[in-house]
Simulated assay, not measured.
Amino acid sequence: MIRLTAERTPAGTSYLATGQGHPVVLIHGVGLNKEMWGGQIVGLAPHFQVIAYDMLGHGDSPLPEPGTSLEGYAEQLHELIEHLGLPRVSVIGFSMGGLVARAFALHQPQRLDSLVILNSVFNRSAEQRAGVIERTRQAAEHGPDANAEAALSRWFSHEYQAANPAQIAAIRQTLAGNDPQGYLTTYELFATQDMYRVEDLGSIQAPTLVATGELDPGSTPEMARQLASHIPGAQVAILDEQRHMMPVESPRLVNQVLLHFLQQAQAFKNQSKGIVA
């Protein structure tokens, strides 16, 4: 078992880092924290340097200033890799983290080696948009755990919930423990920024993978395909029978997809530079 001690950047971002080699940064979803990536840290660390951090308003990182934009969340990632002295990184963003990863790709393209967007949102329908706006209103009124039971039902299969009650309870506790304002600031961005700079997505030149679960109701396969169609050369992976929290529910399956893509991207990079593996 890999046991890590969290560290902090000068700006206060809390992060974990382990492994050797090409750096891969993991960005969690809204209401969660860096601990969600346990399965990926174990699976990826034998091959890469793996860094997981807490977004603004989550875990042990600072709260966002009122009105912080998606650019502010991308700047947090930039400060982290500057602190670690990493000239270029691969970025894996899950759900809200996928929006942050997209913003980072647009604002810091020279720092991005490859991009993975997992179970993230794009071009919501009117019905989907109304649903997420209503959940934002409920969170503003009742706090971060206002939608916890409904969220867990969307995120996990019934079988996984029944077989892993302690883990589900811990995630429910994580949701409830979020700072209300930090959570709401982040959730409002999650609810409204699915089309963030859509006209500029064609400028992303890094190898890109967009993946989601076949049964993910909020980050649907159609969203993944549409998003990938805007990014030159982007690959799409739809994982059979998986729901939203597939990195937690099915880490081995997700890790297989991630390792294949990341190693393929690194091989292509080395080939383009004339480096023989």
Rank of each mutant, 00 (worst) to 15 (best):
M1D: 08
M1Q: 14
L4S: 09
E7Q: 04
E7N: 00
E7F: 14
G12F: 11
T13G: 09
P23K: 00
V24L: 12
V25K: 00
G29K: 02
K34G: 15
G38A: 02
G38V: 14
G39P: 09
Q40R: 06
I41M: 07
G43F: 15
G43V: 12
L44H: 08
D54H: 12
H58N: 07
S61E: 09
P62N: 07
L63K: 09
L63W: 02
E65W: 09
T68Y: 15
S69T: 14
L70P: 02
E71P: 04
E71A: 14
G72Q: 02
Y73Q: 10
A74R: 11
Q76K: 07
L77Y: 08
H78Q: 01
H78P: 08
L84M: 07
R88E: 04
R88W: 05
I92L: 02
G93N: 01
M96K: 00
G98H: 00
V100K: 02
H107C: 10
L115V: 05
S120Q: 03
A126D: 04
Q128R: 00
Q128N: 07
Q128V: 03
R129F: 00
Q138T: 08
P144E: 11
P144C: 13
A146W: 06
E149A: 13
S153R: 08
Q161D: 15
P165L: 15
P165A: 07
A166E: 15
Q167L: 13
A170I: 15
R172S: 13
T174K: 00
L175V: 06
G177A: 13
N178L: 04
N178D: 07
D179G: 03
D179Q: 06
P180H: 11
L184I: 01
T185R: 00
T186C: 07
E188L: 03
L189V: 12
T192G: 09
Q193A: 14
Q193K: 13
Q193I: 04
D194L: 01
M195K: 15
I204Y: 03
A206G: 12
P207V: 01
V210M: 08
L215T: 02
P217D: 05
P217H: 04
P221S: 12
Q226V: 07
L227D: 10
A228K: 13
A228D: 12
H230D: 11
I231P: 06
L239Q: 04
D240E: 03
E241P: 01
E249F: 13
R252Y: 10
L253N: 12
Q256T: 12
V257R: 09
L258D: 05
L259Q: 06
L259N: 07
L259H: 03
L262G: 01
N270F: 04
Q271A: 01
S272H: 03
G274Y: 00
